[in-house]
Simulated assay, not measured.
Amino acid sequence: MAARSPRRPAAPPTAPKSAQLSLFEPPPAPAIEGPVLLLPKLGLPYTLGRSRRRTIGFSVSTKGLRVTAPRWVSLSDIEGVLRTKSDWILRKWHEVQGREQRLAALRIDWQDGAELPYLGQALRLRLGAGRSARWDAGEGDAAPSLWLPLPAEATELQWREAVQAWLQAQARVWFAPRLAHFAERAGVAVPKLRLSGAHTRWGSASSRGVVSLNWRLMHFEPAVIDYVIAHEVAHLREMNHSPRFWAVVASLMPGYETQREALRDALVPPI
């Protein structure tokens, strides 16, 4: 979740219900009709969907190019438009391929010695004794380690569940004081904290004073986490994304733009 700019709340401005910060906003999935065609200039497969829309739309994914066109537009006209847009399509295709390569590099080999990002740094997973997980800061150039009480023959599922449980516990410890800090700066009551495991949202804020934060934020540097928390606290003052809202965010976290850009391009390990 590439992360893009937050979407506006679904409720009307006069009675807002919640505001959410997106991991990503996938393109709409039109009904696919007809054969899979080939774009000659790029050798890139594409599928064609027909809809009631008035213009021709494009979306590029790992499966290739998806084209959505009005029912009355001919195939030859569609391919003519594709040829004029081929440079843009090729650039987007390269971006998708690059993103897939970055995701592949983040995949974790669930065993003793594997690494994953934690607060912006590498964290090494180790098999440990005892009944609870233990974090070791490491010495010198050694990476911090997380010792997990797992059997030597632990399965991938056991590793994943143990790491997820530890990250969620750390998220509560980390988020709560930062939430209180920004609430005090914003002049609002400290909201109730809820952990989220959503794959499409970094966070959300309710007009009832509840802030949900994704525990996967623990992969990122503290400044990025602070931006998401400040963003959601700002919604307790402005349940929208108006200039007034962004002014509140800036008052809570000057220079937030850098962290917002980092979040937009962020990828997290598939845990």
Results as ranks from 00 to 15, higher is better:
Met1Ile: 02
Ala2Arg: 11
Pro6His: 04
Arg7Trp: 03
Ala15Trp: 03
Pro16Tyr: 10
Lys17Leu: 14
Lys17Gly: 04
Lys17Glu: 14
Ser18Tyr: 07
Ser18His: 10
Ala19Arg: 12
Ala19Ser: 14
Leu23Arg: 12
Leu23Tyr: 03
Leu23Met: 12
Pro26Ala: 11
Pro26Asn: 06
Pro28Glu: 08
Ala31Trp: 04
Ala31Tyr: 00
Ile32Asn: 04
Pro35Gly: 07
Val36Trp: 00
Leu44Gly: 05
Leu44Tyr: 00
Thr47Ala: 15
Arg50Ile: 08
Ser51Ile: 01
Arg52Asp: 14
Arg53Pro: 00
Ile56Pro: 00
Thr62Ile: 08
Lys63Met: 08
Lys63Ala: 15
Gly64Pro: 04
Arg66Gln: 14
Ala69His: 04
Pro70Ala: 03
Pro70Thr: 06
Arg71Ala: 14
Val73Ser: 06
Ser74Met: 01
Ser74Asn: 01
Leu75Val: 11
Val81Leu: 09
Leu82Asp: 04
Lys85Trp: 00
Lys85Leu: 01
Ser86Glu: 11
Asp87Lys: 15
Asp87Glu: 14
Asp87Cys: 00
Leu90Glu: 15
Lys92Glu: 13
Trp93Glu: 13
His94Ser: 12
His94Thr: 09
Val96Thr: 06
Val96Met: 07
Gly98Lys: 05
Arg99Met: 11
Glu100His: 05
Asp109His: 10
Gln111Cys: 02
Gly113Met: 06
Glu115Leu: 08
Leu116Pro: 00
Pro117Met: 09
Ala122His: 00
Leu123Thr: 08
Arg124Ala: 10
Leu125Val: 04
Leu125Phe: 03
Gly130Trp: 00
Gly130Leu: 03
Ala133Asn: 00
Ala137Phe: 03
Gly138Met: 01
Ala142Tyr: 02
Leu146Asn: 02
Leu150Val: 05
Thr155His: 02
Gln158Thr: 00
Gln158Ser: 08
Gln158Asn: 07
Arg160Pro: 00
Glu161Val: 08
Gln164Asp: 13
Leu167Asn: 04
Leu167Gly: 01
Val173Asn: 07
Pro177Asn: 10
His181Glu: 12
Phe182Val: 06
Ala183His: 08
Ala186Leu: 09
Ala186Asn: 10
Val188Gly: 09
Lys192Gly: 06
Leu195Ala: 05
Gly197Val: 01
Ala198Asn: 10
His199Tyr: 10
His199Trp: 12
Thr200Gln: 10
Arg201Ile: 06
Trp202Arg: 06
Gly203Tyr: 02
Ser204Ile: 01
Ser207Val: 11
Gly209Tyr: 13
Gly209Phe: 13
Ser212His: 14
Leu213Lys: 03
Trp215Glu: 06
Leu217Arg: 10
Phe220Ser: 11
Ile225Trp: 01
Ile225Glu: 03
Ile225Asp: 06
Tyr227Asn: 04
Val228Gly: 05
Val228Ser: 09
Ala230Val: 01
Val233Cys: 11
His235Ile: 08
Leu236His: 12
Met239Ala: 15
Asn240Tyr: 09
Asn240Cys: 13
His241Arg: 10
His241Leu: 14
Pro243His: 07
Arg244Cys: 05
Arg244His: 11
Phe245Ser: 07
Phe245Asn: 03
Ala247Thr: 12
Ala247Tyr: 02
Val249Ile: 04
Val249Lys: 01
Ala250Trp: 02
Ala250Asp: 15
Pro254Glu: 07
Tyr256Ala: 02
Glu257Asp: 09
Glu257Ser: 09
Thr258Val: 14
Thr258Cys: 08
Glu261Gly: 06
Arg264Glu: 07
Arg264Gln: 11
Leu267Pro: 05
Pro269Thr: 09
Ile271Val: 13
